[in-house]
Amino acid sequence: MIPGDYRVPKISKKFLIISGIGGFITTVLIIVVGIFVGSAWWTQPLFGFDEGPDQPIAFKHAPHVKQLGMKCTYCHRFGTEGAAAAAIPPVEFCMSCHRIVGDDKGEIAKIRDTYEGGKPIDWVRVHRLPDHAKFYHPPHIKKLSEKNNIEASEVCSTCHGDVASMTKVKQVSPMKMGWCVDCHKANGASTDCTTCHY
């Protein structure tokens, strides 16, 4: 060995171990994030999506639907009445029953307070389409109920899943353009751009 020759510095074992583990974690993270973003881009996030968001009032569908047997379109009636969105009914509507029904505790107390305060509830939106995509419920409900020979209130689960058994409502369909167009093609509906975009 010639003096002054370059000598590879000796790497400590400790450094090797730390950087090895660090590198591994980084790689895994990149893959995980990649899968999450990719899946969310194409369809729906693969994981971390089991539950819907927390709502200001923890409304439970189960008692209303399973115990009382109410139909979706009883409360979300706008969809069948000609409005674009089935939408959450206004507080006034909840109060048509809850003025009398229910104890004065917990979530029911909350909704009564809101009603008396005259303030709207800041519901967290679960199904959100971008502004440039316009979706209208009525023609879809009509078509599917006629096609499958079912009642209008039974059509909902086709896209929204079994909401009755969800504790927090979540989105089950991807609601991407491809998903829309596939269904439109399968049912012979228009695929002209202005059907949804204007």
Binding site: G82, D131, K134, P138, P139, K142, Y198
Partner: peptide, 29 residues
Amino acid sequence: DVTVRSRGIMEKCTFCVQKIRRTKRDAKV
């Protein structure tokens, strides 16, 4: 009923296509 256009895109008269769509849809339903 009408998209709020964001920065960087073109827009123009649509003959109020949203009203045409809405009415045709209502007529059908």
